[in-house]
């Protein structure tokens, strides 16, 4: 032992369990909760890599041997995964674009323009959040049928371009209200019209909030099941959740949980990747808009 090390040893505090617990309790709790929430995901991934005989024995978490061929089967053999993926991407991309643009547009009006009846309209708009899809399902079905939009992507996409999601409008409204009024007034004096102010001043300043809306909207439309089920009949138009559901209901596959899980994993993956990359924006946007 050198002379330098002596003080280090002397400074070390005696280990006291209660103190250690107090300092680390929150991590223990968080770790436990995280493990609990991750369990289904872990089981999904694990099952997706098992052979059919292994799926009957859930006690072995790690598949042995690892059945990579499940993914090959899902992607190329069992059902037209590529087509469903493409459909999902098209629907989600359009829905996200529509949601972000239309909700930001409407929210700007509510947050920054003065017009008679604004508050009443805003409350009315917010109250549409109270109606679950199950309530709107039948009227929507009738409307879209009248419009001749059955068996197209239009019912899944067009509403997004008309501010169908009151929650996104509300979220952006709160964010826009936080933008200093003098910036908007300054732009007004500089000669910008409201559309230019919205596009060139408000939107660039709202990137975090717009990112939150984009992510939530993507997640929603990517995982959406009931509307596609309702409005799409042609299997070639199916989105991933719908395709997955049909596959799981197929007699040949119904008992093949390893394949169902492989398909589910493939479907969840894009959302997971996007979340990982967008996490920074996501947290920032939510804290800045004052909504938790």
């Amino acid at each position: 032992m050198t002379a330098l090390e002596v003080p280090l040893v002397e400074r070390r505090k005696p280990f006291v369990l209660s103190q250690w617990l107090r300092e680390n309790l929150r991590y223990i709790v968080l770790f436990g909760l995280a493990a609990l929430w991750l369990l289904p995901v872990v089981l999904m991934v694990s099952t997706s890599l098992k052979t059919q005989s292994q799926t009957l024995d859930p006690t072995h978490l790690l598949p042995n041997p690892i059945a990579w061929e499940n993914y090959h089967a899902v992607l190329f053999e069992l059902f037209p995964f590529g087509r469903y993926l493409l459909n999902s991407v098209i629907v989600s991309a359009l829905a996200v674009t529509g949601d972000v643009l239309s909700c930001a547009f409407i929210a700007y009006g509510f947050a920054r323009l003065r017009f008679p009846g604004r508050n009443v309209l805003f409350v009315l708009m917010i109250s549409t959040m109270m109606f679950p899809f199950a309530v709107r399902m039948i009227p929507l079905f009738l409307i879209f049928k009248e419009l001749g939009w059955m068996n197209t992507f239009l019912p899944l996409v067009v509403p997004s371009f008309f501010g169908a999601h009151a929650f996104f409008i509300f979220l952006l409204h709160e964010f826009f209200k936080g933008i200093p009024g003098s910036l908007i007034e300054s732009a007004r004096i500089d000669g910008a019209n409201e559309l230019q102010i919205w596009w060139r001043v408000v939107l660039p300043l709202s990137k975090p909030a717009l990112a939150v809306v984009a992510i939530l909207s993507f997640e929603q439309s990517w995982n959406d099941f009931l509307p596609p089920l309702l409005f799409l009949n042609d299997t070639r138009l199916y989105t991933l959740p719908l395709g997955l559901f049909t596959m799981a209901g197929n007699d040949d596959v119904a008992s093949s949980w390893h394949l169902v899980m492989a398909a589910a994993t493939t479907m969840v993956l894009p959302v997971l990747i996007i979340f990982t990359f967008a996490q920074k924006y996501f947290v920032k946007g939510i804290t800045m808009s004052g909504i938790k």
């Binding site: 007034e185 300054s186 910008a192 660039p204």
Partner: peptide
């Protein structure tokens, strides 16, 4: 305001944070 041909300097300057100085001046 835009039709009055006036310019205003605000107490908090109201510079557009996402633009450079020259973009601010050019807006």
């Amino acid at each position: 305001p835009k039709d009055r041909d006036i310019a205003m300097v605000f107490q908090n300057y109201a510079l557009y944070p996402h633009m450079t100085v020259s973009e601010n001046i050019a807006f």
